[in-house]
Nucleic acid binder design. Structure first.
Lengths: 272, 272
DNA sequence: CGTCCTAACAGCGA
DNA sequence: CTCGCTGTTAGGAC
C-alpha cells in the first residue's frame, strides 16, 4: 500500500535513526521473503554497519559497510517498525533486524514483501531493482523528462504512470487523484495527449505526491515509529469515493475496472 | 485467400502434373518472395526433379531430388498456374518455374506470398513451417485429438481454430461457417465449451472443409489449370453475408470485429 | 493495496 | 483474405 510519500518518510526516519548502527542479529520468520537461504542472508548482514538509507522506486535501500546492501520492498503493504534498546518489538513480524546497541526494527508484511541482500557487484544484476525509472519526486523528474513518456505508443496513461520501469513510486492509490486532477481518463492512450494534457498531468503528479509527503503519507499507514500519516480518506478527491459526488462537478464518482486494476473516476470530468 | 480445400486440390494437381519433371530455369520477378538471394535460389533448384507434392498447413511442399524442398505459401491469395510446353505463361507472375520439357508454372501473388528453398537438413529450422499443427483434414485430426485443443485456457475459439500451430488449414473464410454450423460465437473462450460443443465444432470443421474440397474449392479461386472451384457465395451460410437473413432463424447476419479480423455471425444462433 | 511470469491479443509491415 | 514481429494487456502465483 505504501507509495512514494510513505516510503520517503520511512527512508528518512530510518536513515536518521539507524545510520552508524551495526547489525548484531537477524531473525527470519518467513523464509520466502528472502533472496537467499536464511543462514546466508544472516551471515552476510551480521557485523555490517548501516551507512545510508534511501529510496529507489518502491524499494528502500540500506547501504552497508563491507560493500553490501539490504533491499526492502513492502509489497502489498507492510509495517516497518523501530524498537529502542530494551523495548518490545512488534509481534507478527516476518523478519527482524537487531543492532548491537539493543535497538532494532521489524518487518511485518500484510501479504507479501521482500528483504533481499546484495553485495555491491551483485546489485546491477538484481532484477527487481535493476531497471527502475526515476522517482516521481526527484530532481530528474523534470517536465521535459516526464513529457518524453508521452506522445508515442498506444499504452494507456494509467499503465504508463504506474510502470515502475518508466517512472517509479506511483501505485494504485495516488494515481486516482493524479488522473482526476489532470482531468484524464485512465485508459486514454499516451499518444492522444496534448502538450497541455501532459503539463497538467506533470503538475498533478508532483503536486499530489508532494502534498501527501508533506502530510507524512496516508493515515492508514504507519511510519517507522508507528505514527500514522496525515492524509485521510476525506483528502481524496475521487480515489476510493465511489458513489460520492465529484468535488468539481457533483457527478457521481464511479468505480471501474481498468485492465486488472480498479479505477475511481468522475465520468464527467474525466471522459474516455 | 486459399485455404485447405483449394490447397488440397492444387497440391494434388501439381503432384500429378509435375512429378518426374526436372527444373530447367527459375525466373524471379519479386525478390522479396524468396528466403534466399535469387541467384542462390535458382542455383539450388535448377537440375532438381520434382518427386512429390503435398500440403503442410497452408504451405505447398514440393520434395525435390538432391535432398531439396521448394515451399510455397500463397499469402493473402495467389494463382499458381500451369502452362504446357510452348504455351504462354500467365503475366504478372512474381516467380516462374520452368521445366526441361518446356512446361512450367507461375506464381502470381495478389499481395504477398513466399517461395522458399530448403535443403532437407535445413527443413527442421524453417521457422514458418517448423511447428505447424496437423492438417484439419487428415487422419491425425481425430475427435479425440481435436478435443485436446479445448477445455483449458482463456483463448477464443476462433483464434484457436485459425492458429496454424495447433490445427492447420483454416483461414478467415471457412471459419465463418464452421462456427455458425457449430452455433458458437467466435469469441467464446475455449475453456467454456461443453463436450457437445466440441463435438459439434469438430463435425462442423471437417464437414465444412470436406464439402468445399469435394466442390474443388471457392469459385473465386483458380486451380492449377485456371479452373474455378464450385463453392459460390450462395453456398455460404453466414460468411460474408452481412445484412442477409440467417438460413436457420432469419435474423440478420452481422459483421463484427473480433480482434483484428472480421467475423460474420448470426447474433441469435451464435450468442456471445 | 505489489511485482513477476506467461499467455493472449492488437497493430504494423512485408 | 496471410504471417511474423513487437508492444501491450490480462490472469494467476507468490
Amino acid at each position: 500500500m505504501a507509495e512514494l510519500p510513505e516510503l520517503l518518510v520511512l527512508a528518512e526516519q530510518m536513515g536518521t535513526e539507524l545510520a552508524g548502527k551495526t547489525l548484531a542479529d537477524v531473525e527470519v520468520v518467513q523464509e520466502k521473503c528472502l533472496n537467499l537461504p536464511p543462514a546466508a542472508f544472516r551471515q552476510n548482514l551480521v557485523g555490517c554497519r548501516i551507512d545510508r538509507v534511501y529510496n529507489r522506486g518502491k524499494w528502500i535501500f540500506l547501504d552497508l559497510s563491507q560493500e553490501g546492501h539490504l533491499l526492502l520492498n513492502l509489497g502489498m503493504g507492510a509495517d516497518l517498525l523501530y524498537y529502542g534498546p530494551g523495548q518490545a518489538w512488534d509481534d507478527g513480524h516476518r523478519v527482524r533486524f537487531h543492532f548491537d546497541d539493543g535497538s532494532g526494527f521489524t518487518c511485518r508484511f500484510w501479504w507479501f514483501g521482500h528483504a533481499h541482500y546484495c553485495s555491491t557487484p551483485e546489485l546491477a544484476g538484481h532484477e527487481p531493482t535493476a531497471s527502475l525509472g526515476p522517482l516521481a519526486l526527484s530532481d530528474e523528474m523534470t517536465l521535459e523528462w516526464f513529457s518524453s513518456l508521452f506522445g508515442k505508443g498506444r499504452r494507456r496513461v494509467k499503465a504508463m504512470l504506474t510502470d515502475q520501469k518508466r517512472i517509479s513510486g506511483i501505485g494504485n492509490v495516488y494515481i486516482q487523484d493524479i488522473l482526476f486532477r489532470a482531468r484524464l481518463h485512465p485508459t486514454r492512450p499516451v499518444s492522444g495527449l496534448s502538450e497541455a494534457d501532459v503539463a497538467r498531468l506533470y503538475h498533478a503528479t508532483t503536486g499530489t505526491l508532494r502534498e501527501a509527503y508533506e502530510k507524512r503519507g496516508l493515515a492508514y499507514e504507519k511510519d517507522f515509529y508507528g505514527v500514522p500519516g496525515g492524509v485521510t480518506m476525506d483528502d481524496f478527491l475521487v480515489g476510493y469515493r465511489e458513489g460520492k459526488p465529484c468535488p468539481e462537478c457533483g457527478a457521481t464518482v464511479a468505480k471501474i475496472r481498468t485492465g486488472s486494476t480498479a479505477s475511481f473516476i468522475c465520468p464527467v470530468c474525466q471522459p474516455e
